[in-house]
Design a protein around this nucleic acid. Structure first.
Lengths: 226, 226
DNA sequence: ACAGAAGTGTCATTTAAGTGTCATAGTTCG
DNA sequence: CGAACTATGACACTTAAATGACACTTCTGT
């Protein structure tokens, strides 16, 4: 599963360069030059990370950053800021605003790619080939394998994606809507009730060895793991 | 719950400076100058983050980093590297090795603190103040969880919204009218007396462990928390 | 290509949890 | 004491989630 990236950059030349490099790295890239549009896109598609230029049209990058953090859909998405200035004050303001890292222009694409990998390693370990662990459940994304208490568990594809989605966000409550877009994809017209059924199946599969239920139902909100 | 930090730094002056600053920020700090000892301490105490100098005695910081990543206890702990060099190659090697961020000497403590907060925000959001706290009650909005004195408490949706509403305005007296619009929404036609009932239910839930009542009734005005 | 197995989405139904209102009992304060 | 409020228990009602069944699709091995 390729990581999805949103690049917010209003210099067309730089944008193209970035898109080219990231696509070569296997990322799925969306791009906009406009801050307002960036907010919409981000909320709609919840990318795995956002590359954000400090100075863009309409609103400043820092303001975009702040607003991304305020919206619950995007509050957890890692943000890397691109900035032309090098002063420490600016750096700190960027970080306080909620950026996860910043890269000072001029930079080499290689550096930006390394930074992005580092940031993703934290937030979405599965995208960088790490096994996920929550309580006694282990999920190896590359081997497509799940174990509970050391015992291998068999999951269908949807169950697997759903479990991975949960394990990347342990403890967090996900609404049915978030699960639909996260597990089935952005443009699927799935009944929200179907989520319930899939949850039931996932539960059944995970508890097959007699373990206690690890999926918590949060009434009128959604479900969470662990 | 204070975040626990491990500082690995062999320059005594710098170490002391860092310890002083981080403790002032409320972190619980452990320190060692030795690489091997750092590995032991890290595995034993699994800190919430590690500040690691690039060049230390015995083994290089980069080697420590690599080995921290290899041990399962510490493989997920965020690492910030301190480095004296500024060359890009080194930066990238540091990140590839598994460091989550690096800071180039000389740096200001303020910057390091901001970086640390950024890194922790990713890995342990609960430690960076995303949860609301009033007296011995904690409410985590993303996990949809409430604890009193460390013990988990189960709330219905309305009770949860109501508690959150109070916790966002600690100490403030809210009239029934304000509560109706705040908790039920602007356009709800709810009896004001219903607020009383919901308050009673919230109280019952919060005092389930035998704690004293934290909701104050203000006669002819409303209610307040804390 | 084909049969059988495994997996998936939807619906109707059952079960459970939470909510709003009211009548009544209890408090507070002048 | 009595007026004005607030607390409480009961109950009917709403809303939400779990479940079982079933038709349909996708895989898998032959």
């Amino acid at each position: 599963m390729a990581a999805r990236l949103l690049i917010v950059e209003d210099d067309p030349a730089l944008a193209e360069l970035l898109i080219w490099h990231f696509e070569a790295e296997g990322y799925e890239v969306r791009h906009t030059a406009d801050g307002e549009e960036a907010l919409l896109l981000a909320a709609e598609e919840t990318p795995d990370a956002i590359i954000l230029d400090w100075m863009i049209e309409n609103i400043s990058g820092i303001e975009v950053c702040r607003r991304l953090r305020r919206v619950s859909e995007t509050s957890a998405v890692p943000i890397i800021m691109l900035t032309a200035r090098g002063e420490e004050e600016d750096r700190i303001r960027g970080l306080d605003t909620g950026a996860d890292d910043y890269v000072t222009k001029p930079f080499s694409p290689r550096e930006l790619i390394a930074r992005l990998a580092a940031v993703l390693r934290r937030s979405r370990p599965a995208l960088v080939g790490k096994t996920l662990k929550v309580e006694d459940i282990e999920l190896d994304p590359t081997a497509h394998r799940v174990r509970r208490g050391g015992v291998e568990i068999n999951l269908g594809p949807t169950e697997f994606r759903m479990l991975q989605h949960f394990m990347e966000r342990p403890g967090r409550v996900l609404t049915r809507g978030q699960l639909v877009t996260g597990v089935w994809g952005n443009d699927s017209d799935i009944e929200e009730r179907t989520v319930d059924v899939q949850i039931k199946r996932l539960r059944a599969a995970l508890n097959i060895g007699g373990g206690k239920d690890v999926i918590r139902t949060v009434r009128s909100a959604g479900y969470s793991l662990g």
